[in-house]
Design a protein around this nucleic acid. Structure first.
Lengths: 235, 235
DNA sequence: TCGGTATATTTGTCTTACAATAATTTTAAA
DNA sequence: TTTAAAATTATTGTAAGACAAATATACCGA
């Protein structure tokens, strides 16, 4: 408590609240390797002393980290670093882009094009099997309400890339244009099945280029379809 | 203050703190279209009343939203919704994956493969010009210290896709394996220039497939190089 | 050994007070 | 009248302390 001769010099670009500094210091525990994902953090009382901040400030920092899904807190159970990146932060952030449908679609495009390429390198036989089943479900659907199976198809591919960082983002993006998706009147089932099958076959051959090519064709179609539909709704 | 007969029924999967609920409600203002990016939020006092929570709880929620770069706060200036998704949240979250270099690289791969494809549809002449300059800087560098120009090349392409959602993520990813990047002893300048030039030419032709192909070739090389290097350091 | 009960630890929420910042208004000078 | 300086005030930032709620742990009895 004696001296407080620090904190003088960085008056950096974006305002530095105490809570932000605390977040930064806690994150550094991971970056510097002092703590690892899954580790338990000290209780708030200890952290307050160690970091020399009041409880509200500390709690603002911890709340933020919890919202970012970097930590998990449980009453009486303590606070732990999570093991991998979560998906909710993305959906929250995506709220800023709700009125920019094109950005959402193209973000999804960008991700899926990359992921299908990597998936072609890695996909397992079981995943291929599940892919096939999701195609069959679409083909057999009598009504035109196969939206869930459609999403499932894309989700399986994303997961096949087996990348913990990007996994969460896909879901948020797929969900994001759910609303629009639902408004597409003519679901052209046969075309969807044809596209999906082509992608599936490319993955079966473990051919990254072909997988990319087929996915690109498919997503260009989806993009056009969605943007068309929205346009006709807005004007 | 009279009755408090609500909040009874959802005891959902992940524990619902008041702060989280407040975040959700504020985000809904955007999703429902009641408020738009750039809009000013009511001062804390009003929000407390409206949402019927104490100030610390409200402030935990606002802190979280600020950390997610969904809002910006300024002392005495008020609180505003931001206009687009930011990049810092990603770098914070990435802290959980510091020890998973492969995931970082492949996340970058996935994103860049998709982005270069979309960039090929959209890139402007000015951006092409800047790309060419960044290649020249690498070619002319006498030492082997062209890391910045290298990153610049990839950054320009990412920005050319002109997608506000993905923009932020690339920076975080490029920075993330900066450390490793720096440890690569043999920077094979000529090969880098050759790869970059091939990508540039594809973009010049606005050829998405060719752009993808060349970027894939390049990134496969980068991935192998980095993983090799790290392996030789760790063991 | 098992099952229930009590205890204590840890996170969750609220109230109040004051500090710091900067937008706004007022005042004074040119 | 315009401009610049100074005072005011609205708004966010930080702190302290108290109590509530939840539950992991220890304890006790059957």
């Amino acid at each position: 408590m004696a001296e407080t001769t620090k904190k003088v010099f960085v008056k950096s670009v974006s305002r530095n609240t105490l809570a932000k500094q605390v977040v930064e210091r806690i994150v550094q525990l991971l970056v510097s390797g002092q703590m690892k994902p899954g580790d338990k953090l000290p209780p708030e009382m200890e952290l307050m002393e160690e970091l020399e901040v009041s409880r509200p400030v500390l709690r603002e920092a911890l709340s933020s980290l919890e919202m970012l899904e970097v930590i998990t807190r449980k009453t009486r159970g303590g606070t732990y670093f999570n093991n991998k990146i979560g998906s909710k932060p993305f959906s929250v952030m995506l709220a800023l882009s709700v009125d920019n449908l094109q950005a959402v679609i193209e973000a999804r495009m960008a991700l899926e094009l990359g992921l299908v390429t990597i998936a072609a390198e890695k996909i397992t036989d079981e995943e291929l099997q599940k892919l096939k089943e999701s195609i069959d479900r679409i083909a057999e659907s009598r009504d035109n309400n196969y939206g869930e199976s459609d999403k499932e198809f894309h989700r399986i591919i994303a997961l096949s890339a087996n990348n913990e960082i990007v996994e969460g983002m896909i879901d948020s993006l797929l969900i994001a244009h759910n609303q629009t998706d639902r408004q597409i009147k003519y679901r052209e089932r046969e075309l969807t099945v044809e596209h999906h099958t082509a992608i599936y076959n490319a993955l079966l051959k473990r051919d990254p280029h072909e997988a990319f090519t087929q996915m690109y064709r498919h997503l260009k179609y989806v993009r056009e379809k969605i943007l068309q539909t929205v346009q006709s709704l807005d004007f």
